[in-house]
Design a binder for these strands. Structure first.
Lengths: 242, 242
DNA sequence: GATTCAAATATATTCGAAAATCCTGCCTTA
DNA sequence: TAAGGCAGGATTTTCGAATATATTTGAATC
């Protein structure tokens, strides 16, 4: 801590040290996913430089990267804004992700070896350690859960040989994270159900039952998205954008 | 020309003027697609700044963008390299693009209006003006052909409401451009065939025959990729990477 | 009061220099 | 001779200042 002081450090030259760029990219994305920065909000450099304590150039590179990932938009001359969210987009992202995840897990089941299997079991175990906790404790370790949940789904498809399929799948997963966040505080009763679904997906995949794994994944993802959809578009009618 | 002189201009301050960033991004991508920079080649800032006459920061942003598009790779601390090419990747990109293009054109056929139809016909006409030319003339206007070919395929799917589907489709199309380039000088007899295929695709789409349009697109893309594959992997055997 | 234009402010964009890191060749030593 | 380590140079990465662009404010005119 005492050493990490940087900002107000008298003449602390550059403080480059570790890769600051990578850091700020992850933090910025996390702050957008967690709605710290609201959708459509302008992202001003003056504000961000002081918040993350990095230079303008580094910030610009990170924002540019996030733009190509779809988290922010860039209008030439007018700066960066947080990308909007919408029920329509959620539906589309969900469909694409399900499509990718199903294809990838099928490929993984074909090509996966014993290490792949073992890794799935291990990562699932780590996930279940959090999901088995009572609600209050689980909420406290939510950030950890997000990470382990990501690792679990990633482990399922890690043996898929298609690098681009994995890449696109990963992009969609990241986008879904944004929408998953809205259900963070309202997944009381659903927690136990997700717990069970993850176990079933793990078992079906390790057992190399591709059809069953694909089907389980589809309902699992669709279910989560539907819950987010209900919050985004309260009524069933078509309450368009604000 | 004479006015555009910038680099050696005595104390020419910044020369910012128009968006230099956007420019260098497009040029850099074009130079990678056209294999001006060979796969795996290191991209040194010293070399690029003089070539494109822009600052390091601008260059870094452009390269970072290209990295997320998959044209270059970035290893922390070691700089940027042109992304490698391989027969395996071509096969995968082709499959993904075909999948996206077929889905998108089906959606477009459902949602497209008369303006959409008219635009397809117009853009196809512009394309055919080049494709109808004798071989020598066509080669001379190859850059123009690339642009119009892109616009033609884009017009087919432009009425598809799924923004992410279009986005991913566009990514794969850009990647395919890299591989299409290797067939540039060897598509003598195939030129007439492609000409005909484009016409058929245009007609089927405008006639709202989704099944036929999808089938035509599939064979059209697959055919082009197969031609590139033969050049990349000369024998039918599995001659791995160099 | 509404509209137009211009100054002033705020913000984005670009640049080159400074610091950190990586690579290479040479020297020492066992 | 081979392994290890230490300059020296080359390259990347980061930063803040300088410039260009957009937006707002305010005054003058219709």
């Amino acid at each position: 801590m005492a050493d990490g002081a940087t900002k107000s450090g008298s003449q602390a030259t550059h403080r480059t040290g570790a890769a600051a760029g990578r850091d700020v990219l992850a933090r910025l994305r996390s702050d957008i996913v967690s709605s710290e920065f609201k959708p459509e909000a302008r992202l001003k450099f003056a504000e961000l430089t002081s918040r993350y304590d990095v230079g303008i150039g580094t910030l610009r590179e990170a924002l540019s990267q996030l733009a190509s990932e779809g988290f922010v938009t860039l209008e030439a001359g007018k700066g960066f804004k947080v990308a909007p969210v919408s029920a329509e987009e959620l539906v589309e992202i969900t469909d694409l992700f399900i499509n990718f995840e199903k294809r990838a897990v099928r490929e993984a089941i074909v090509h996966g070896d014993e290490d792949w299997e073992a890794n799935i079991v291990a990562v699932h175990h780590r996930l279940s350690l959090i999901e088995g906790l009572p609600w209050a404790d689980r909420m406290e370790r939510h950030a950890e859960w997000v990470q382990r949940h990501r690792e679990f789904h990633e482990s399922l498809v890690s043996a898929c040989p298609g690098r681009w399929l994995l890449r696109l799948r990963s992009m969609m997963f990241d986008q879904l994270d944004r929408y998953r966040f809205v259900t963070k505080n309202s997944s009381g009763s659903a927690g136990r159900q997700k717990f069970e679904e993850h176990r079933q997906i793990m078992e079906a995949t390790v057992a190399r039952d591709a059809d069953r794994a694909a089907a389980l994944i589809e309902t699992h993802i669709r279910d989560t998205s539907d819950r987010a959809l209900k919050i985004l578009a309260p009524a069933d009618g078509a309450k368009a954008a604000v």
